[in-house]
């Protein structure tokens, strides 16, 4: 893009600082503005100041939260793992390209009358935490590539969760190790979370596979700790997901017996 072509757009973007601080940008403009902020320190400082002004408006709205909410939240907290502090996390690992998925599709809203069953806890909260991670991508102390990755992933996750036919499944063994899936058959996507598993020893990794009748297992990507994995391009004929332990970098086909397997029937697949 030529410089001449970019200048007016930058000026235009700059005027979005106040709407941004008030959360008055739509999704696409918000993303564009956040990208702009990363390359413009002055704008970032100004936007931060405007955001501080905006949050003062919240002072006038406090209201006691329902008592039942307290019990639910505190109970949830007791069983929900936390994210490590930024910077202390594992270095980003190269994943097969299809794990990142295609370009984000337009957001779809969920009809209010018919909510999908609640996704398993670990999945829901991990996904939600990533959404927040992306929210604060501008402030977070991470490299640009990591922020882009986290944001793309958060968008993918939000998209799956918002699909009208999103459904959840959860499997757990006696040791409390489990797999959670939120999947949308119409989107061909699923968000998959492992919980309670220790990282495999050495250089080895947990790899996710999808099984179809009469076909070889197809890799859906490698897990990084308890970070949800977004699987795209899932065929309706997919019958189950499996996780194996593989050498670093993953394998083309499973080289060991699955450590766990989850049928996809209950989330709208396996036709």
């Amino acid at each position: 893009m030529s410089l001449v072509g970019r200048l007016p757009r930058r000026g235009g973007l700059h005027s979005l600082a106040a709407p941004y601080a008030l959360d008055a940008l739509d999704g696409a403009e918000r993303d564009r503005f956040e990208r702009h902020l990363r390359s413009c320190d002055r704008c970032a400082a100004e936007t931060r100041a405007l955001s501080e002004d905006a949050v003062r408006l919240a002072w006038s709205t406090a209201a006691p939260a329902p008592a039942a909410l307290r019990d639910r939240v505190l109970a949830a907290v007791r069983t929900t793992a936390q994210e490590p502090a930024p910077g202390r996390g594992r270095p980003a690992r190269r994943l097969p390209p299809h794990v990142w998925g295609g370009p984000p599709t337009p957001e779809r809203s969920r009809p209010l009358g018919r909510r999908p069953p609640l996704p398993p806890f670990a999945t829901a909260t991990a996904a939600a935490a990533l959404v927040v991670a992306s929210l604060f991508a501008v402030q977070a102390d991470r490299t640009r590539a990591e922020r882009d990755t986290a944001r793309d992933r958060a968008r993918e996750i939000a998209h799956v969760l918002a699909a009208p036919d999103a459904r959840a499944a959860h499997g757990e063994d006696d040791g409390g190790r489990g797999i959670g899936v939120v999947a949308s058959a119409s989107e061909g996507r699923a968000v998959v979370t492992l919980s309670g598993y220790r990282e495999p020893s050495g250089d080895r990794v947990h790899q996710l596979w999808v099984m179809r009748p009469g076909a070889e297992a197809r890799s859906l990507g490698l897990f990084e700790g308890d970070t949800p994995l977004v699987a795209t391009g899932l065929d309706r004929s997919a019958t189950s997901l499996a996780v194996t332990v593989e050498p670093g970098g993953g394998s083309h086909r499973p080289t060991s017996r699955p450590v766990l397997q989850l049928t996809l029937e209950s989330v709208g697949f396996g036709e």
């Binding site: 939240v73 907290v77 929900t80 793992a81 936390q82 994210e83 909260t125 927040v132």
Partner: peptide
């Protein structure tokens, strides 16, 4: 509200007091 509070628990480590 429940989502927000759980996110807060999960990602409290992201809070940077220098930012506000």
């Amino acid at each position: 509200t429940q989502e927000v509070l759980l996110e807060l628990w999960r990602s409290a480590a992201r809070f940077d007091p220098r930012r506000g």
